[in-house]
Amino acid sequence: MTETPNPNIIDADTLTGEMRPIRRVVLSLGSNLGDRFSNLQGALDALADTPDVWVTGVSPVYETTPVDSPEDASLFLNAVVLADTTLSAHRLLDRALAVEDAFDRQRSEVKNAPRTLDIDLIVVGDRFSDTDELRLPHPRAAERSFVLRPWFDLESDAEIPGVGMVAELLEKTGDEGVVRRDDLVLDLS
């Protein structure tokens, strides 16, 4: 994972002339309420329609057992999206939250409560952040096979900065409760 996938490409802000590097980002999508597949497809479409975000890859869809959720929580559908962006991590987070809200995401005091849509920023270039608003890399991604398995499908040599190689992390977590759904294919049009 590099700060600028192609060091020869830098986007200049047309109003200020400020140069902004293009960063590779990894986002995790999940849904276990409503039409789960439509929620994931809608999230992918919204991300792809975001100015200064270029989706470069979408993983297969996986059906997964909820982790650290209430006992009656339904199975999730999960996928991982790779993109390049010139947006700052905070602007990208704002966009992810807005997309969740558009899909009627209800925030709850209940940890890992069921949700129509969850979009997590896993990695944003080589950025590290440890604030209440944004933690990068995502603090639990290395322990979540529902993130690691689809990401590995896209980039078998991927690395979580400061944590380790996705392949090695997936080997540690295993992929029990993570089932690939080849009958569900997200369309990047």
Score class of each variant (00 low, 15 high):
Thr2Arg: 15
Glu3Lys: 15
Pro5Arg: 11
Pro5Ser: 03
Asn8Arg: 13
Arg24Gln: 06
Leu27Thr: 01
Ser28Trp: 03
Leu29Cys: 11
Gly30Pro: 14
Ser31Pro: 15
Asp35His: 13
Asp35Glu: 12
Phe37Ile: 02
Ala43Thr: 07
Ala48Ser: 13
Ala48Thr: 05
Thr50Asn: 02
Trp54Met: 09
Gly57His: 08
Val58Glu: 00
Ser59Thr: 09
Pro60Asp: 06
Val61Pro: 11
Glu63His: 10
Thr65Tyr: 03
Pro66Val: 10
Asp68Arg: 12
Leu75Phe: 05
Phe76Val: 09
Ala83Glu: 00
Thr86Gln: 07
Arg91Lys: 08
Arg95Leu: 04
Ala96Met: 11
Leu97Met: 12
Asp104Met: 13
Gln106Thr: 03
Glu109Ser: 14
Glu109Leu: 14
Lys111Val: 10
Asn112Lys: 13
Ala113Cys: 07
Thr116Gly: 11
Thr116Arg: 13
Asp118Ile: 11
Asp120Tyr: 13
Leu121Ile: 04
Gly125Ser: 07
Asp126Gln: 12
Phe128Arg: 13
Ser129Glu: 10
Glu133Lys: 14
Leu134Glu: 05
Arg135Met: 07
Pro137His: 03
Ala141Leu: 12
Arg149Ile: 03
Arg149Gly: 00
Pro150Thr: 04
Glu159Arg: 10
Ala167Tyr: 03
Leu169Pro: 02
Thr173Ile: 10
Gly174His: 08
Gly174Ile: 05
Asp175Gly: 11
Glu176Asn: 13
Glu176Ile: 13
Val179Tyr: 10
Val179Thr: 14
Asp182Ile: 01
Asp183Cys: 04
Leu184Lys: 08
Leu184Asn: 01
Val185Trp: 01
Leu186Met: 05
Leu186Glu: 00
Asp187Val: 12
Leu188Thr: 03
